[in-house]
Design a protein around this nucleic acid. Structure first.
Lengths: 202, 202
DNA sequence: AAACCGATTGACTGGTCAGTCAGCACACCG
DNA sequence: CGGTGTGCTGACTGACCAGTCAATCGGTTT
């Protein structure tokens, strides 16, 4: 049985995934050769195929791991019973913190999946959509409770809110906008202020 | 001299560019073969290389043609002397109308260039940045005139505004959000309402 | 009519990789 | 001590495709 054999001291699979994050972030998915991942991880070429069925599957895994956390965070915020505005701030905060904590992984997810809906991201459109829908639900509930104005379609507001966040991260990623602890700290409240003060009835 | 020779009845170069728009929009740049473009245009494979130096150059040309119009529109809005809020509405309107008028071309530009800053878009980062900067300038002037609140960095506001627009177009492109004349008509004022009512002092 | 020249054709080449596979190394077991 | 299996290795292959180029076409000039 499984316990009769000790697990390998080092988790090769994890080692390969972590190496892939670095290489994808540095060169992009398309110009990364499988041999680059193996080299970065310090393992043989063939071992990548021992743990994954294809190069795509490596990226899939990275995306799904992280995106499921995001979905959970949004849905938890929704269930929290806080003010609608506070829920959105939680969502923005989670995404910003994800970037602060692991910018390379977030770069890969945004650049190669989320913003690549035509190529790779196509497979993940349903999961991506689920995030938009959950945000839209927060907005809709806020409208029903009178905390948000009712003349803006929740799906539209969701796009505007998520789009603003993602564009800000893109700006950080590509040095179009300064990125430092100061910015990270202010981002979530600035984001919420920018979007909500337009959503809340005056 | 030039007039002694009649121009070709059909503009082959244009014909190839237009075919490329359709094929890129349908399959994406990476999975488009040069032969696909030639087939779609109804010309021989080699002719593509008579008019362009590479497959990249075709996409470059499509992007630059359109982006220069966008930059001109933003800069003209800025010079117009209108209210800051009206300037932003003009910008949003121009982009939305670009999509309404030629959704395939806008899909290609957004998906393959603007949101692909890691691969293809890298070459065009300076031009892309110029758009963000021009929008930021509109915001900054609005702040100086007291029409916008001063506690939001113009560069940040620019990202939020542009990000919201682009995310909305992405939603239309990938059917994540309904797209019809109704939506197109309302989009620019909804966009402005969402963003500006958060930017304007209360 | 013959030379000329740009437009047009499409077969071919060279290089690049993703994915395969035959086999090695080492630990543990009977 | 030979047998067995799993982790691991890396050379190799088959497919794909951007870009080249030699040849042809059709109109214009002399």
């Amino acid at each position: 049985m499984a316990s009769s054999k000790a697990a390998p001291a080092i988790d090769r699979r994890r080692q390969i995934l972590d190496a892939a994050i670095r290489v994808f972030a540095r060169q992009g998915f398309h110009s990364t050769r499988v041999s680059d991942i193996a080299d970065e991880a310090g393992v043989a070429y063939g071992l990548v195929y021992h743990y994954f069925n294809s190069k795509d599957e490596v990226l899939n895994e990275l995306f799904s791991e992280r995106w499921s956390l995001l979905l959970a965070a949004i849905e938890e915020a929704d269930r929290s019973g806080a003010e609608p505005r506070a829920k959105l701030e939680t969502v923005a905060g989670f995404i910003v913190d994800s970037y602060r904590h692991d910018p390379e992984l977030m770069k890969v997810i945004i650049v190669e999946v989320t913003r690549a809906a035509n190529s790779f991201g196509r497979t993940h459109l349903p999961e991506i959509r689920r995030a938009y829908d959950s945000i839209a639900k927060i907005v809709a509930d806020g409208q029903a409770a009178g905390a948000f104005r009712g003349d803006i379609e929740p799906g539209f507001a969701s796009m505007a809110f998520y789009g603003a966040i993602e564009q800000l991260l893109s700006g950080w990623i590509f040095d179009l906008v300064p990125a430092s602890e100061t910015e990270f700290g202010q981002a979530k409240s600035l984001l919420t202020a920018t979007i909500c003060d337009g959503l809340e009835p005056r």
